[in-house]
């Protein structure tokens, strides 16, 4: 298994500064700042409703914060657009699996390569030959990812009929198909049994180790978080109450209080 030492952590690639996001009266995020370094696994933890998913949604542009700035690879923005985030190399999975239910596993993963295909939709409509060649090349990449995540046996299966744990894995595959430089994972192990969790942990570490992908990960399982992440941000009621390496966070009083105080 890959260790932190094997993949030198690089410069800061994503900076979030003073992010505030409210839904009507609910303050989902209040003045949150933190950064993410290249090649690291950065966890976001916190009790239910703390604002973790909202944070991820701000990073890839699903939500527009009322205040704050996002700097990704030197470009400063007020908000991201999901499409723009994808074009910049940010891929993600969702807390509530968001697969294309009517499609096969293979087609789902192929959509992940959407932006890797060079022909635009309009060109595509006009040049079938080139589009076909491109399709075949991209199929090869997708097959590699399928091998990597060990889902060969379900390639042709309609995704809606798969068990939950496998659906999560297909969603990860679709995100990886984009060959992202930043991968956002919203509770990739939630609802899994022990064995499935171990597999998922291994995949996350392998993605990070083999491809050098930077990962921002939301996870409730403390054991997992402390094991695999390099640094951890702790949110509670939309505020940041901790930020540091796992050992620091584990021994922080504010964090302990938040976790003991919250029904979980």
């Amino acid at each position: 298994m890959t260790t932190a030492a094997a993949r030198p952590i690089g410069d800061v690639i994503l900076t979030l500064e003073h992010i505030s996001l409210a839904f009507g009266g609910v303050k989902a995020l209040a003045d949150i700042s933190f950064d993410v370094r290249e090649h690291e696994i950065r966890a976001i933890i916190g009790p239910n409703g703390a604002g973790k998913s909202s944070m991820l949604n701000v990073i890839n542009g699903v939500y527009r914060p009322q205040e704050g700035t996002i700097t990704f690879r030197g470009e400063v923005r007020r908000n991201m657009e999901p499409h723009h985030a994808a074009a910049q190399g940010i891929a993600r999975t969702f807390q509530n699996i968001a697969l294309f239910k009517g499609m096969s596993v293979l087609d789902n993963i192929m959509t992940g390569r959407n932006l890797r295909m060079r022909t635009s939709f309009i060109e595509h409509a006009l040049h079938w030959g080139r589009a076909n060649r491109e399709e075949i090349e991209n199929r090869h990449r997708v097959e590699e990812i399928i091998d990597f995540l060990e889902i060969q046996h379900i390639r042709k299966a309609p995704v809606g009929k798969l068990p939950y744990g496998l659906q999560k894995r297909v969603e990860l595959a679709r995100a990886l198909a984009a060959e992202p430089s930043l991968l956002l994972l919203d509770e990739p192990m939630a609802g899994m049994n022990v064995e499935e969790k171990q597999d998922m942990c291994r995949f996350v570490l392998d993605v990070n180790g083999q491809y050098g992908t930077t990962i921002v990960l939301i996870e409730h399982d403390m054991g997992v978080v402390m094991d695999i992440s390099d640094r951890v941000v702790v949110l509670d009621y939309g505020r940041k109450i901790g930020d540091g390496v796992p050992d620091e966070v584990r021994s922080s009083k504010a964090v302990i209080d938040a976790y003991l105080g919250a029904a979980h």
Partner: peptide, 27 residues
Amino acid sequence: TRIGRALRAVADDHQAALAVGIPLQQI
């Protein structure tokens, strides 16, 4: 085709389609 796949993706899940970079408005 790829456009067809994108169309079905949009039909299934807007958010996910956006997240993989499918330009909804073009579709």
